[in-house]
Amino acid sequence: MKSPALIFLAAFLVNNIVLMRFLGLCPFFGVSSTIETATGMGMAVIFVMTIAAWITWIVFNVVLLPLNLVFLRTAVFILTIASLVQLVEMFLKKSYRALYNALGIYLPLITTNCAILGVTFLNIDNKFSLLNGTVFAIGTGLGFTLVIITFAAIRERLDLAPINPSLRGYPISFIAASLMALAFLGFSGLFGLT
């Protein structure tokens, strides 16, 4: 069993959710046009990912496993996450207005973010304990935030650069992401993690 610190590092850098696992690419390309929106999205992802990891872990281990309903995993998880996001949104709106103003518009987008559902599946597939699952979710969320903010910074500069018209927009963003992924490949093997 790996220690929580190694699980965190693996999720944060070595197996980065966006650049190495290819999850959450829609927000990665969709809301990374400015650093400000990227930061908001990153924070919202960390927040929801951690809560979703707890709830789905409990649902899976307390409800689905004892009742032998593992085949319902996909349907139950997606519905759990969708309703969770709604609840979180309503709760923040009523109780933490400042936080809601900062994260509010990103919360509905998160329901269809495959990174959230992906992390809950990976938690179950890796048979993590609740503590390790939490660490994994936070590490993954931080990794997502790091990459999306860095990418937003690059894209802000790319907008000003003289680029061939057929490369403008998506193509040059993909090529920039490719170079970032190449840099992140350098982390593989860190502390023996692959």
Partner: peptide, 22 residues
Amino acid sequence: IFMIMSPGAFLVIGILKALINK
């Protein structure tokens, strides 16, 4: 070898999209 790793995926779709644009 990097084409079957993650950077290759971003690079291939970026170049294909640029060719489609052109």
